[in-house]
Amino acid sequence: MKASPVLAVDNLSTWFDTEQGALKAVDEVSFQLDAGDTLGIVGESGCGKTVLSLSIMRLVPTPPGRYVSGQIALNGLDLLSLSEREMRKVRGKAISMIFQEPMTSLNPVFRIGDQISETIRLHQGCNRSESHHKSIEMLRLVGIELPEKRIKDYPHQLSGGMRQRVMIAMALACHPQLMLADEPTTALDVTIQAQILALINDLKRAMGTSVILITHDLGVIAENAQQVAIMYAGKFVEYSDVKDLFSLPLHPYTKGLLHSIPRIEGDYCRDKRLPIIPGVVPELSRLPEGCRFHDRCPDVLPICRNVEPALIGQGFPKRYVRCWKYQ
């Protein structure tokens, strides 16, 4: 028997009202995430992946943002219907988030220990000395040496990788059911990136936390996620098991993305050029008619220019693609 999903997002749309009209940052997004799984969300800048994660945290500023439609259910609890007060109890406890830039997301004027124990005191109702000990435990867990000493450090005294470890310690301090990681390793060097991703995976396994991993790096997804969603201009264009996606990408955008990455395997040839996706991502306020990718698509059909395709299942379990070629 399959357990019910930890997170179920159904037909979620988050728009922003601007002078140019409604900006459809997240448009009709649906997915389910099982306990202990990692869902990777991939897309280029401005595709709506960060707004999607902020929507799940209910951190989209309203106005100008607007939850136009849909439901976000965390273990059956409808997050969009909660009051701000109730939501504050969910954030940091049931759902936590780590951001791309650990320097700007830690408070520079407080010691890291105080920042971690604040979360613990707030959600677990323990006193200062208990939370202090738990903070030291968390720092030890994320691989920071001499945590008793480090706990008194300010963020600027730590390197980028260490700061990201502190962010992870804070995010996992209350054993959340869901952790949102928005480009957690983009600002880090590759060797540190590998360490941080390994750490997230270990802790995820130990605590049974589900993770949404947002990134533009398909390599990171290949090694760290079970499911993957490709986002383009506010919509999911492909959803798949990670293995299937890389062995058989279906959507022309997914194929284009995969081909345009320079690989370290294969031969070097000076005359080689990368296959490119022509053109640029459309502006969200001026989306084209029909499929949002049609004017860059190598396989464009007449219908693509007029009618938007739906996200359709492809026979495999959990495999969906939004493209007329497969309907």
């Binding site: 345009s260 320079p262 050029r273 490119i276 996706i277």
Partner: peptide
Amino acid sequence: LDVSVQAQILNLMKD
């Protein structure tokens, strides 16, 4: 730069 844009710029530099 994003991957798809990165590919365009890398090709341009080689050209």
